[in-house]
């Protein structure tokens, strides 16, 4: 019978951690791009676009991420496409991330004084130009801390991809547990690895936040 030593368990978990990191990065960057598009729609003052984004955000923030994963996994299959857990997880996490990032960034945009909008529109800047040259450069300064903070939620969110069969850190932990029957050790290590991924980000987010407060 195959025996697993402590180092076998740890090295297998670390290999799977790469997939957690890859999935987190893809979800975060794709979610950021979709979120930016949604942000433009949300603050556009065009009623139809604002309503669409409101419903979109309400749906993705008001339902469990797990349900969204299931819906993508089984929903796309209805159209006759073969869906890999990888594709379903990427799509669901991207849309979920975008909904939260849009709301975070909207808060930052709304924190910019109204005079900035008025001044830039009196200089004949279009809405896109106002956002690009006046509002976003200022809003992005206050957006960094909550965005980094949210990236921790993204990493933790990828753990749910294990449920639809994507092999990342949590799934690898379950598989190793089934092979070794050492749940305490395996899940302690899994938790520890997640902690090592997330804690520096949490700490960094807190630090940036503190620095912003001093600047005022």
């Amino acid at each position: 019978m195959l025996q697993f030593s402590f180092w076998d368990i740890l090295s297998n978990l670390l290999i799977a951690t790469q997939w957690t990191i890859v999935l987190s990065l893809i979800a975060f960057f794709c979610g950021g791009i979709v979120g930016l598009i949604l942000l433009f729609m949300r603050t556009s003052k065009i009623a139809a676009l604002e309503w669409f984004t409101k419903i979109y955000i309400e749906f993705f923030q008001g339902t469990p991420l797990l349900m969204q994963l299931f819906l993508f996994f089984f929903g796309i299959a209805l159209f006759g496409f073969e869906v890999s857990p990888w594709a379903a997880a990427t799509l669901a996490l991207t849309f979920w991330t975008s909904a939260f990032l849009t709301e975070i960034w909207r808060g930052c945009v709304e924190a910019i004084p109204k005079g900035q909008w008025e001044a830039s529109s009196s200089l004949a800047l279009s809405y896109i130009e106002q956002m690009r040259y006046v509002i976003l450069p200022q809003a992005s300064r206050i957006a960094v801390a909550p965005t980094v903070g949210f990236s921790v939620q993204v990493i933790k969110g990828t753990a749910l991809a294990s449920i639809i069969g994507f092999v990342e850190l949590t799934k690898a932990g379950t598989m190793l547990n089934n092979a070794t029957f050492r749940p305490f050790l395996v899940y302690s290590l899994v938790a520890l690895i997640y902690f090592c991924l997330c804690f520096p980000l949490s700490w960094w987010a807190k630090k940036i936040e503190g620095r912003l407060n001093v600047a005022r």
Partner: peptide, 17 residues
């Protein structure tokens, strides 16, 4: 510890660990 680990891992740790 709790804020920087996923809920599902905490759950598995409690139930299986």
């Amino acid at each position: 510890l709790i804020r920087n680990t996923p809920f599902i891992v905490q759950l598995f740790f409690i139930f299986f660990g």
